[in-house]
Amino acid sequence: MGFDYEKYIRPGKLPHIWCPGCGHGIVMKGLIRAIDALSLDKDKTAIVSGIGCASRLPGYMDFCTLHTTHGRGVAFATGIKMARPEMNVLCVGGDGDGVAIGGNHFIHACRRNIDMTYLIMNNNIYGMTGGQFSPTTPFGAKASTTPYGNPDPPFDIAKLAIGAGATFVARGTAFHAAQIEKLLIEAIRHKGFSVVEILDSCPTTYGRRNKFKSVVEMMNQLKESAVPVAAAEKMSPEQLEGKVLTGVLYKENKPEYVAEYGKLVTRVQESMAG
């Protein structure tokens, strides 16, 4: 028997809605293996998302799941975590959801360092609405709203997260399937706001417009462009041209928001008691 994914998936929900070759399924499997490795209690784990293809993920998962409004997943998740600090809170979504319409919530969750894990499946496009450019669509790339090539420079999600104060930032790819699980295990264990960006494939609305012959070619590009952080240290800037760093990009320990608020409550209540 291989790994029993269906133990964590709601009965009757497969096959999922994602297109052939969409990497979201690969990422979801990595998430399931991470949850399994950490033995997270299904009843005490909330999985929250916004809107978009990636945000459909919670619907399959047999946990407390919340599919919210576009870009707002992290804000809903913040309410859950503040109200029930004992719950594990995971938030998932795509690039448009997370760093365009949800960009403000994203940077503030990073700053606040609230204990939750945000998994961003970055496929560089708005898939569900049919392939409009997102804040991570590469410069010059084609999308339905950049028919002459994208004049709009992209965000680097990981750098954005680090700059905003996230205390754990990692990047992987849908091709490096085993690594997804490892990064997520470390992210979920981390006390604070952890961001895991997975570079993903959208053959249907991105690949076809940008001359990828198949999803295999997209996967090969992910494979070839990814450079583990340790390997990158030994490479020259020329060698790193066009590459993306993968692995744990940043990690630090800083006061975590919910714990700090808990201390404040204790302090106030103690001063009331005399």
């Binding site: 929250v48 804000a75 809903f76 998740a77 913040t78 309410g79 503040m82 109200a83 719950m87 403000n104």
Partner: peptide, 19 residues
């Protein structure tokens, strides 16, 4: 919690109420 904007505040309220 003071949130980053009005939208987030409404979202957090719904999240908390669901618990």
């Amino acid at each position: 919690i003071q949130m980053e904007d009005e939208i987030a505040a409404m979202a957090a309220v719904i999240g908390a109420s669901l618990t």
